[in-house]
């Protein structure tokens, strides 16, 4: 039973097709990555999933039911464009958001305080939002999306603008939510983050689905043709016929093999000429897979 399913969804604005015949499904308990460069249609897809806009054609199901607004109390959403009432006190704001999602005011207050302690912003809970730093505001937004304990969590670029400490804190929180069985949709143009966190992905470009499936399976479909070598001594092996391109950073080399290049032959040649400290045949990153798939035509 998928938590979210999009079937041939299309959305156009005037003469621009934002999303074209998009289909994918998100299974319960998954951390799902919706990937693509800026302007690829990620936010448009999310907006349709939660009823902010309606698709021109195709269908969307939430919790295995055709989309209905009543399901939205089971969804937590952190939009890319962060929004908080600037003149409102943090606690009042969180109680208001919790109440809108069906909590009683008392329950919302209890949870807001617990979350504030957990994310280390308890001291700011009685302050007005515009008195807080951007990072703290982002944490409040994060709490606001999770306060009603949603089954489906949708995060659009959740770590943008955060310092590494806070990014790790929120990342760990998301992993905790996943461990509790929550389904997480994580939209970003930062493919390195997705690689670490997500079980499955849908990669979109200019509104079209380019790739989808489990991250491991996708990566295994692409051959390992990138080698990292760390060495000392004669570097003449870098002119080997197996190599298409090599970048040498004083003993640390990033090598791209030819289509028919043999890594084992290269290793033998390198070992015969230099002292090898590291020889690693790398699997392609999602970013490389993406660039390979769309032929380098990335807008952002």
């Amino acid at each position: 039973m998928p938590v979210v399913e999009l079937s041939a969804v299309t959305k156009a604005y005037q003469d621009k097709v934002a999303v074209n015949q998009l289909s994918f499904r998100i299974e319960p308990g998954q951390m799902f990555g919706l990937l693509g460069p800026n302007g690829s249609g990620k936010t448009s897809s999310i907006r349709m999933m939660i009823g902010i806009t309606a698709p021109d054609s195709g269908s969307i199901t939430l919790f295995d039911q055709p989309f209905s607004r009543s399901s939205l109390t089971r969804v937590g959403y952190l939009p890319e464009e962060r929004g908080l009432y600037k003149k409102m006190k943090v606690l009042d704001q969180l109680i208001f958001m919790g109440s809108l999602r069906g909590l009683s005011a008392d329950e919302a207050q209890k949870r807001a305080i617990a979350w504030a302690k957990k994310l280390d912003i308890a001291h700011a809970i009685l302050k007005k939002t515009d008195e807080l730093s951007k990072g703290m505001q982002q944490k409040i937004q994060f709490i606001s999306a999770l306060i009603h304990e949603p089954e489906l969590i949708i995060m659009d670029e959740p770590f943008s603008g955060l310092d590494p400490v806070n990014a790790t804190l929120l990342q760990d929180t998301l992993l905790e939510q996943k461990a509790q069985g929550k389904t997480i949709l994580f939209s970003t143009h930062r493919m390195d983050q997705v690689e670490k966190l997500c079980d499955s992905i849908a990669l979109i470009h200019q509104g079209n689905l380019v790739l989808s499936g489990r991250v491991r399976e996708i990566k295994s479909r692409y051959k390992r043709d990138r080698v990292i070598v760390e060495f000392q001594g004669d570097d003449s092996f870098l002119r080997s016929p197996e190599i298409a391109q090599a970048k040498n950073y004083s003993g640390h080399v990033e090598i791209q093999l030819k289509d028919d290049g043999d890594a084992q032959k290269l290793l033998a040649e390198a070992a015969s000429k230099a002292t090898i400290f590291r020889f690693e045949l790398m699997e392609p990153s999602l970013e490389e897979i993406f660039i390979q798939t769309v032929g380098g035509k990335v807008d952002a």
Binding site: I50, G51, I52, L72, T73, V75, Y77, P79, E81, R82, G83, L84, Y85, M97, L100, R101, Q141, S144, A145
Partner: peptide, 9 residues
């Protein structure tokens, strides 16, 4: 930008 959050509910 509060609308986006509000409209999700």
């Amino acid at each position: 930008r509060i609308f986006e959050v509000m409209l999700a509910t």
